[in-house]
Amino acid sequence: MEPIRTFASKTIVLPIDNVDTDQIIPARFLKVTSKVGIGKHLFADWRYDAAGTPKADFVLNKPEAQGAQVLVAGDNFGCGSSREHAPWALVDHGFRAIISTTIADIFRNNALKNGLLPIVVDAATHKKLLAAPGAQVSVSLQDQMLTLPDGGAIPFTIDPFARYCLLNGMDELDFLLSHDEAIKQFEAKM
């Protein structure tokens, strides 16, 4: 994985609470054995009508949303199913960070393994971002800092080990594999 340090992007805003992973990618798109091209199904039932035509009023389909890498969403983003297809679809579409007031546990874990930053902010910052779609923000994983268009610097926290892996382009599986001896010792005592 490519190391992540700092990036800047405009935001798109999805002001809905409890966006579950069935909305992020409906189950009928999970009958795959790879993750290639999965981004086209992102938010499928909100994004396309029954005939598959993009709905003009859905935020992802708006011209001003094109190229946005930061999604500002309502509280408790990513709840529900454990499907890692959800962060795969978001990343494949081009997102690099999700900003919310709470991010569901399994989704957060899955996101971090795919270079998608789950950024939790305070309610006041969240409100400000929800009210300003298209805001140009900058995200520094190194400094764990979100910079707003007005210059406001909002600190956020990423799990220290996940952050280390992302900053160094390291894989968590390599780290686990490096514990082979300890695992063997544990198994010997079982």
């Binding site: 454990s82 890692e84 874990n109 899955n110 594999l177 695992i183």
Partner: peptide, 20 residues
């Protein structure tokens, strides 16, 4: 508890998970 597919690969390969 439930895990994602990356973690499925971790458990398949090491029988362990990184957990807080």
């Amino acid at each position: 508890f439930g895990i994602g597919t990356s973690e499925v690969s971790h458990v398949l390969a090491t029988q362990c998970l990184l957990q807080n």
